[in-house]
Nucleic acid binder design. Sequence first.
DNA 1: AGAAGGACGATTGCATACAATCACTCTGGT
DNA 2: ACCAGAGTGATTGTATGCAATCGTCCTTCT
Lengths: 264, 264
Amino acid sequence: MPLSPDEPALPPLVRPTVQDAIRRDIIAGVLTPGARVTEASLAQRYDVSRVPVREALRGLESEGFIDSRPHVGSRVAAIPVHDADDLFAVREALEVSTARSAARRAAALYSGDESPEDWWRLRRQIAGLLDAGDAHVAAGDLDPLVGINDQIHIAIAELSGSATLTRLLRQLSWKIEWLYAADMQSRGKRLWPDHRVIVGAIDAGDGERAAALMAAHVRESRIGYLSRYGITRPSSDPEVAAAVRQQQGGAPDGARPGADTVGA
Amino acid sequence: MPLSPDEPALPPLVRPTVQDAIRRDIIAGVLTPGARVTEASLAQRYDVSRVPVREALRGLESEGFIDSRPHVGSRVAAIPVHDADDLFAVREALEVSTARSAARRAAALYSGDESPEDWWRLRRQIAGLLDAGDAHVAAGDLDPLVGINDQIHIAIAELSGSATLTRLLRQLSWKIEWLYAADMQSRGKRLWPDHRVIVGAIDAGDGERAAALMAAHVRESRIGYLSRYGITRPSSDPEVAAAVRQQQGGAPDGARPGADTVGA
DNA sequence: AGAAGGACGATTGCATACAATCACTCTGGT
DNA sequence: ACCAGAGTGATTGTATGCAATCGTCCTTCT
C-alpha cells in the first residue's frame, strides 16, 4: 500500500460561506420545501447583510435548492423524489468514470509520468476517512457514516483530477443526501466495506476493476434507496427494478408508494 | 404526430442576466482562459454595478467557468479538454435517462394519467427547432445548427420533467460547447437527422427505443469530437476508442495530440 | 549581496441607502 | 354580487461607500 510522502496534511483552503450554511439547513430539513425565504429574513438568521445572502441564493438557485422568481421572491425547492432513479443512474455513470480515471492516474503516477501535489494529500485524507469509518462501524454508531461515505466518494472524484466531474458529483451527492433526508443512517452498514476494496483497486492502478467495483457499489445503494422509498415508477434499469421488487418483497415495511413530491 | 393544443407558445420567463452574458463571452472565446477578470472591469464592460457582477461571478464559479480566490481575484478557468471523454460518458448517461423519461411521460400523457401545462409548449418548441434546423441544412449554412442542436437536447430534457437532470445537462452542454470552441460548425451535418427520429420515439412513448437512439446519437458525437481533437489518453470505452482510431486513420488532419490544457 | 520586514496600492467583502417592480387589498362601478 | 382599477405595502434589484485583506515593491539590516 503506497503512502510514502508524509507531511502535515492541512486542508487546502475552505471558506464556510453563507451558501454552505443555507444548503446544509435545507438538506437537514430545517428549511422545508416550499418555505418562503426572503433575503431579509435569511440575512437576520445568519447575521449578515443582504448582499452575501443574495449571492448565496443565486448559487443555490443554480444548484437547484432554491426556486426564485424575479421581483417576487425565493422558495425552497421541492425534493426531487420522482427523479431519484434517474439521479442514481447518472451518479452511476459519474462515479464509474471518476473511479476509472483515478486508477489510471495512479498508474501514471507510479510509472513516474506525473506527480501532482494534491494526490498524496487526497490519498492520505481517504486513508483517514476509511479508518474513521471503520472505528465508527466497530463502535456501532452509524450516524457519521453517511457524511464520511460522501466525503470518500468526493475525494475519489478529486483523485481523478477532473474538476468538472467532481463538481457534478458534488451536486448530485447533495441531492441524494437530501433524498435520504433524516432517517437514513443505516444504509452504510452493508456498503461500508466496499470502499476499502475500491481504493485498493485505484491504488493498484487497475482502472477496469475500479470501475466495475464502483458500478456495483453505487448500484446497490440505488437499489437500497428505491426499495425503501418505493418510488411511483419502477427503475429504468431492468436489473435494478428486479432487485428492488425482490428486496421489497422481503421487507415491505418502509415502502410508501403514495407521495411523489414533498412540499409544505 | 400528436400536436393538438395550439396556442401562442411564449417562453415562460427568461431574464438575460450578466451571468449569461459573461458565460457566453467565455464560451465564445472573447474571454480567454487564464485571463484575469476584476469585478470593476466587468462592471464597466457590461455597464452595471459591481453587485450584479459579483453575483454572476459566484454563479459562474459554481458552474466551473471561473476560478476565484478570496481577496485575490478571479480568472477564467481552463478549458477541461483532458476531461472530454469523461464528460461525454456522463452526458451519454444523462441524455439516455432524459430521453427514456420523456418517452415514458409521453405514454402516460396519452393514456390520460397526467397532462401538464408545459408539455405542449415544449413539444411545439421542439417542432419549431426541428423545422428551423432542416431549413438551415437545406440552405447550407451550418453555423446555427450547433445552437439549435443544444436547444433540442435541453428541451428533451425538460420534457422528461426532471429539473435536476435538466440542470446538470445544461451545465454539461455548456462545457462541451466550450470544448468545441470556435471552429466546430460542421459536426451537426451528419448527426442532425437523428433528432427527428428520437423525437418520434418519444412521441410514440417508446422509452427503450428513445433511450437506445439517444445513446447511439450521443456516442457518435463523442467519437466525432475525440477523433478530431485527438486527446492524449484513449477513451475509457473500448468501443469508442476503437471507433476513434478507425476514424482518425481515415482523416488524421486535425488531430493534435500535444496540447492538454488551453491556457493564456 | 541576499533576505527579512514594513508600507503602499489594488481588489475584494460587506453594509447601507435608494429605486423598481410586483402582489395584494380596498374602493368604486356595473 | 362580481369585476375592474388604483393605491399601498412588501420585496427584490442596484448603486455607492467604506473596511478588510492580500500581493508587491521598497527599504533596511545582516
